[in-house]
Design a binder for these strands. Sequence first.
DNA 1: ATTATGACAGGGC
DNA 2: TGCCCTGCCATAA
Length: 107
Amino acid sequence: MATNQHQKILEIVRLIPPGRVSTYGAIANFLAVSPRTVGWALNRSYNPDAEKVPAHRVVNRKGMLSGKMHFGDPYIMEELLREEGIEVEEDFVQDFKKRLWDPVEEL
DNA sequence: ATTATGACAGGGC
DNA sequence: TGCCCTGCCATAA
């Protein structure tokens, strides 16, 4: 369902710059919602604007591509990140801390 | 209404 | 980047 919180979450995700990644927790903290809610908002089943949202730039707090299985095929998320210059190894974003984009600090 | 589940986070060990 | 448990909240059955 497209609730207000979902809209806010998708809005923030769309602001993530190419070549950068963010986390569920950072977005959740910025919007004052629970990290779980962020995960649900990005779920393709409840996200009508899936094609407009760079959900591949959102990973969990450890920099792991925890949602790669939701892109249709597991390799898609990793490919998209590499195309933007983000190194991915064994499902983990390399230099995660450097590439982290936190809306609380960036906005 | 109640229970179970999930693209999570944080703290303890 | 372990593992286990708790808190969190939307959604499905």
